[in-house]
Structure formats: structure tokens, C-alpha cells
Amino acid sequence: MQAFDLNGDFFPKTEKLILLIGFFDGVHIGHQKLIQEAQKYGSPIGVLTFSSSLIGLKEQKLLLSEKCKQQKLEDYGIKYYFRLNFDKVRKWSKELFLNHLSNINIEHIIISEDFTFGYQKTGRVRDLLDFFNKDKDIVKVISPLALPNGDKISSTYIRTLLNRGEIEEANRLLGYKYFRINKVVEGLHNGTKLGFPTANLEQENSLVDLKDGVYKTHVKFNNTLYLSMTNVGCHPTVDQLSKSIIETNIFDFDQNLYGKTITVFFDRYIRPQQKFSTLIQLKEQLEKDKLSILNIK
């Protein structure tokens, strides 16, 4: 995959491509449907997306970090990745945006029928069709994937599911297991004292808040997968923290992970965070959690 950081002043020369436009946070099954549609034409696929300063503006947290999003799109076969600096282009009128698109060597643009663009979302699918589809059907419109209740599948909805601990439904809509790739940082070593040493993930404030509690997870380290249980929370029983952290206890694992990067995949929500009156009770509960996780099919 070739990636470009763009400021809106020019567009790099490419071969003729199928273009997808959007924020693509989470690269969920709705996005995947667009990609599959694009693959039918057999030409290389480019994604036009926006740099994530958007988060600051909308106070919206992300499902995936910029790096993970890019990686996911590469996994799905995207060849060109154009990241437009949102601060530079967010005030563009729809006309300006359309003119900018016309600099791209486009075979087709594939969009879903609810697509909007331009300042204050004034640009609609109709505008794209009028601009591009004069002689040829450049722009192809597909209907977005919908939930049984008719709502479209959106990154916002998946974020809400994760806030609520509905990890399995979130995973279904993502089309993969929700994951975090982070460095392991030093913790308070309280887990080790309890016989459950944990790898603490470096905090990433731009990412979505997961519901506090214990999760069945698995970890990828050096490409090897291990079963683990992960706590998201602020340690109500010992040394209460001001903010929730993510820490994972990898089963039967004795390698030193400090400073190493691991991936934690979230499989299932096991139980909410709980305050125990004694450490022994906490330890007993952790043992029960581990046993139930080991036996989940």
C-alpha cells in the first residue's frame, strides 16, 4: 500500500483507480461491503480519508488508531491511501471538494447512498452524480448495510456497543475481533502479588472507552496467540486509579513484556468491575474468572 499525507493543494499521480471516500473508522462490515463492491472492477483501490484531528473537533473517540486503520485497509487489499488534512479542507464548499476530486485518476467512485461531503455536509450523492456522471457512470451508489431495525451500521453505533460492554455484537458488526495494539508499560505490580501478573497497556486517550469489567481476550505476541483475561477498570479494591486502564493476564506465560508491543483481542465480556472487601475475595473471583474463560467454547 502507498500512503500519502495531503493538504488539499495537489493530488499525487496514480494509475486509474476505484476510489472510496470516508472516515472509515473501525473498517466495519459496512466499509467492507464498499471494498467488496470496489473489488468487482478488478482495478486498484484507493481510499480517500481524513487525518484524525477531526476527533478534537467533534470530541469523538476512535475505534482504531490511525495506524491500525491503515493496517486494516491494507489487509483488505487497498492499494492507495490518501489522508487529507481535515483542518485544511473542512471549510471547503461542496464545489471545491468536487473540483479537488476531479484531479484524481478515477475509474469509478463507490459511495453509499447516505454519503455527504463539503462544509456542513451540504454535498449529497446527487451533487456527485451531476458532477461526474455526465457521459459515463463514474459514480456507483450502493445501499448501506443496515441493522435489523433499519438503522445503518455506523462507527458511532459500534462505539456505543463497546461503551456498553456489548463486545460480541460489536465484533459481529466489525467483522473481526475488536483489538488494541499497544506497548506494555510498568504497572503497580498488584496483580503479581495476587498471583495474576498483568501486562498493562499504554493508554491511548483518543480511543473509545471500553466498559469497565473483566473480558475474555486473547493476546498476540511475536505472532503467537495466547488465551488471556483482561481487566478494564480503575482497581476499586486496591490503590484506586483516577482513570480506567487496560491490563491483561496471559495464561501460562512467563516472558517479560515491558516495552514490547502486544495485541489484545476482545472476545467476550465476563463480568462488571466489582469492589471486594478483601484481597482474598478478589483472588478467589479471579480464579473463578480464569476457569470460566478457559472453558468457554
Binding site: D75, Y176, K220, L225, L227, I293, L294, N295
Partner: peptide
């Protein structure tokens, strides 16, 4: 299959069964 699909399938065998 995508590599991702295979990795996820392999991960589903972790633990006791």
C-alpha cells in the same frame, strides 16, 4: 481466506475444549 480470518479461527481453539 484472508489471513485475518484464519488467525481468528485459530484463536477460537485457545483454552480447554
Amino acid at each position: 481466506f484472508s489471513k485475518d480470518t484464519i488467525v481468528q479461527t485459530l484463536s477460537s481453539f485457545l483454552g480447554k475444549s
